[in-house]
Design a protein around this nucleic acid. Structure first.
Length: 588
RNA sequence: GCACCCGUAGCUCAAUUGGAUAGAGCGUCUGGCUACGAACCAGAAGGCUAGGGGUUCAAGUCCCUUCGGGUGCACCA
C-alpha cells in the first residue's frame, strides 16, 4: 500500500479529481477543504461540498454522494468514508493504512522529505529577522519572545525546505553612544569592567544620561562625542567597537542557552553607508517629500498614513530605523536574494512595519525591482499576573540571564525531589534542559498575538501543556528501550510486528499520522503553538496507551508492534521539540 | 481625537481562519501503582463565547453598535 506524507492533502486532491470524474458543473472551482476531524467523526472531514453545492443551488448530500461514488481505488483502499450531516464527507483511516504510514515515516529524514515535498516555501530563501537587541544593554525579558519565536520559525521553515537566513539586526548605532562614551572617558571603573563589561557599559549609560539631564553642558559634550564617533574618530570608534564586542559575547551566552546561532549579525551600523541611496531613490520616485525639515513618506490611499508620516530621515539629517530598515530590505534582496523576510517583533511596532510594507512595493516598482514578501510576525507583551509589563520589584527590566538562571534553579529543585538518585552533575544537566525548555515552551505554546502572562508555577509545572510533560514522555519512551536493551526504530526491534488492534494502539497511530497537519499549520501560519498543541496531545495519547497496553509483553508480534508505536512517538516528539528549539533528554 | 488589537469555564489558555454537541490544563470531587518511570492514567462537575442587533444552510470566528481592557499616532528603536 502506498501512502503519502500529508494524508489530508492527498484526500483533497482525490476529491478534486472525483469532482471532475463525476462531471460536477464548474468542477475546477470545487475546493474540498479537507481537515483533521473531531475523532467522533473520523480522522479527516471534507467541508467544501456544503458551500460549493449551496452556491449552485444543488443538494449538498447528493453532491457528496456522487463524489464518494467515484473516489479512486487508492482512497477506497486506505479509508472508510461516509456522507454525514448536511453534506460533510468523513474519512476514517483503516488500520493497514495507518501502519503503512508509520512504516514509510520511520526517520527524521523521511519526515523532512515529506514536509518539504509540497511546501510552498521549499526552495525559497527566507530571511528571519529576530532577537535584534540593542548593544550596550543586557538582554531582558522583553527580548525573550522574539528570540524564542524567531528561532522556532526559522527551524520550521528550514524543515519545509526553505533556505533560511538568520539575521540578528542589532541596534548598534543609536544616539545613546554619545552619552556612554562621555561617561566612559570620565567614570570608567576598571575592576567592574573586567568583571562584566556589559554591566559596566550599562552603568555608564545611566551615569551619562543622568549627567546630561542635569547639566546642558554635559549634554552638549555627549552630542559632540556622538558627532566625533559618526565622523570616524578613531578613539571613539575603538570604544564603540569595545561596546559592540562585549555586548555580542554576552548575547551569545544567552543564545547558547536557547540553542540559537545566527548566520549574520548585521546591525544598524552596517547600513550606515547605504541609506543615502534610499533617500535618493525614494525622492526620485516621488515617494519621499520634505516635511518640517524631515524626509517623509505619506500614503494617500491609507486612512491614517495619509497624514501620519513615515520619517525616513530626521530633520537633523541623521538616519533613523526607517532609513536602515529600508536599506536592509534592499540588501537582503540584493545580497541574499530573499524571497521574503519575517520580522519577529513586538506588536507595538505595528505602525512602523505597516508603513515599511506600504513603502517597499511602491519603491521597488518605481525602480524596476521585484519586491520581496514582507511578513510581520508580531507578538504581545510579557506581563505579570496583573497584566502589567513584567518588571523587577524595583521597576527595572528583568535580565534574561537572571530569568534563565532562575528557571534552571527551579528545575534543579524539582529534579532533586523526583530523581534524587541521579548523580548531581546529571541533575544539573537535566535542570538546564528542563528549565530553559520550560521558558521556551511556555512562550511558544500560546498564540503569539496575545499578551503573555509570565508565571513560574505554570511554566515549570509537571503537568498540563508544559515542556516538562513532553520531556517526561520522551524520557519514559527512552526508558522502555533502555530496559529492553533495544534501539528505537531498529529493524530487528520491529520485525514481525502484528497489525494494530487495541483502541489505545489505534488512537496513538491516528494521532501520529496527523503530524503533517500540525506542521503545516504551524509553518504556513507562522504560529508555533499549533505544533505545541499537537505534541502535547500526542504525549497525552501516548500516556493513555502506555497505561492501557503494556509494551514489554512476552508475545513477540504484539511487543514488536507496540515498540514500533513507541519508536514513532519518540521520533515525532523529538523532531517536533527540536523544531521548536527545545533539547530533549533520555532520563530526567 | 483618530486608528489598530483584545474580551471564551473560578484561573491560564485552545478552537485548523465560516463547519457538526465550544475543547484542554490548573483548582475542586471520585477512582487506579506486588506491569515497562504515578513528573502518569480513567472519570465527574464547571459555558447565554462581555451585552445587543444583523449577514446564511451554518457565527466564538464576518458586519454594525454599546460597554470594558490594551497599544500606537513627527523625528528612541
Amino acid at each position: 500500500m502506498h501512502v503519502v506524507f500529508n494524508l489530508a492533502a492527498s484526500l483533497d486532491a482525490a476529491l478534486q479529481q472525483a469532482a471532475v470524474a463525476c462531471g460536477l458543473p464548474e468542477a475546477s472551482a470545487f475546493a474540498p477543504e479537507v481537515r483533521t476531524a473531531d475523532p467522533r467523526h473520523g480522522d479527516y472531514q471534507a467541508n467544501g461540498v456544503l458551500g460549493f453545492a449551496k452556491a449552485r443551488k444543488l443538494n449538498p448530500r447528493t453532491v457528496a454522494t456522487q463524489l464518494v461514488a467515484v473516489l479512486s481505488p487508492a482512497v477506497c483502499e486506505s479509508f472508510d468514508f461516509t456522507v454525514a450531516g448536511p453534506g460533510f464527507i468523513n474519512f476514517t483511516l483503516r488500520p493497514a493504512a495507518l501502519r503503512a504510514w508509520l512504516d514509510a515515516h520511520s526517520s527524521r529524514d523521511a519526515l523532512a522529505r515529506g514536509g518539504s515535498a509540497a511546501a510552498p516555501v521549499a526552495g525559497q530563501t527566507w530571511v528571519v529577522d529576530y532577537s535584534s537587541p540593542n548593544t550596550a544593554k543586557q538582554m531582558h525579558v522583553g527580548h525573550l519572545r522574539s528570540a524564542v519565536i524567531g528561532e522556532a520559525l526559522a527551524r520550521l521553515l528550514a524543515f519545509s525546505g526553505a533556505r533560511v537566513i538568520r539575521d540578528n539586526h542589532i541596534g548598534d548605532w543609536g544616539t545613546q553612544f554619545g552619552k556612554i562614551i562621555w561617561a566612559y572617558r570620565r567614570h570608567l571603573e576598571e575592576a567592574a569592567f573586567a568583571r562584566d563589561p556589559l554591566e559596566e557599559f550599562e552603568r555608564l549609560y545611566k551615569v551619562g544620561h543622568a549627567a546630561a539631564e542635569a547639566d546642558p553642558a554635559v549634554l552638549k559634550e555627549a552630542q559632540q562625542e556622538l558627532v566625533k564617533l559618526q565622523a570616524g574618530d578613531p578613539d571613539n570608534l575603538a570604544i564603540w567597537k569595545k561596546i559592540g564586542d562585549s555586548s555580542l559575547s554576552a548575547f551569545q551566552q544567552i543564545y547558547d542557552q536557547l540553542g540559537i546561532r545566527f548566520d549574520h549579525t548585521l546591525g544598524e551600523s552596517f547600513y550606515n553607508d547605504k541609506v543615502a541611496q534610499i533617500y535618493r531613490e525614494l525622492t526620485d520616485a516621488g515617494l519621499a517629500t520634505e516635511s518640517q525639515g524631515a524626509l517623509v513618506v505619506f500614503h494617500p490611499e491609507h486612512p491614517r498614513f495619509a497624514t501620519q508620516p513615515f520619517i525616513i530621515r530626521k530633520s537633523d539629517g541623521a538616519a533613523n530605523y526607517a532609513s536602515t530598515d529600508l536599506a536592509t530590505v534592499l540588501y537582503r534582496v540584493g545580497h541574499f536574494h530573499a524571497t521574503g523576510v519575517l520580522y519577529v517583533v513586538d506588536s507595538r511596532q505595528r505602525d512602523h512595519f505597516d508603513q515599511l510594507f506600504l513603502t517597499v512595493p511602491k519603491w521597488f516598482a518605481h525602480t524596476g525591482r521585484t519586491a520581496p514578501e514582507l511578513k510581520l510576525v508580531e507578538f504581545g507583551t510579557v506581563t505579570d499576573a496583573a497584566g502589567k509589563p513584567l518588571k523587577t520589584k524595583s521597576g527595572d527590566n528583568i535580565k534574561l540571564k537572571e530569568l534563565l538562571a532562575e528557571a534552571e534553579a527551579r528545575a534543579f529543585a524539582l529534579v532533586g525531589e523526583r530523581s534524587a538518585e541521579l548523580p548531581e552533575a546529571e541533575r544539573h544537566a537535566i535542570a538546564a534542559v528542563v528549565g530553559v525548555g520550560s521558558v521556551q515552551y511556555a512562550d511558544l505554546a500560546q498564540n503569539r498575538s496575545s499578551d503573555y502572562i509570565f508565571a513560574w508555577d505554570k511554566m515549570i509545572s509537571l503537568d498540563g501543556n508544559t515542556a516538562a510533560y513532553l520531556l517526561y514522555a520522551v524520557a519514559r519512551i527512552h526508558s522502555i528501550f533502555r530496559k529492553l536493551g533495544l534501539t528505537p526504530g531498529g529493524n530487528a526491534t520491529e520485525a514481525g510486528a502484528s497489525g494494530l488492534e487495541t483502541p489505545a494502539e489505534l488512537a496513538l497511530a491516528r494521532q501520529l499520522v496527523k503530524f503533517p497537519d500540525a506542521l503545516q499549520a504551524a509553518t504556513t501560519q507562522l504560529r508555533p503553538h499549533f505544533l505545541c498543541l499537537y505534541l502535547y496531545e500526542l504525549a497525552g495519547t501516548f500516556s493513555a496507551f502506555y497505561n492501557a497496553d503494556k509494551v514489554a509483553v512476552d508475545d513477540a508480534p504484539v511487543r514488536a508492534r507496540r515498540l514500533l508505536l513507541c519508536a514513532r512517538t519518540l521520533l515525532i516528539l523529538e523532531t517536533g521539540l527540536d523544531l521548536l528549539g527545545l533539547k530533549t533528554l533520555q532520563r530526567m
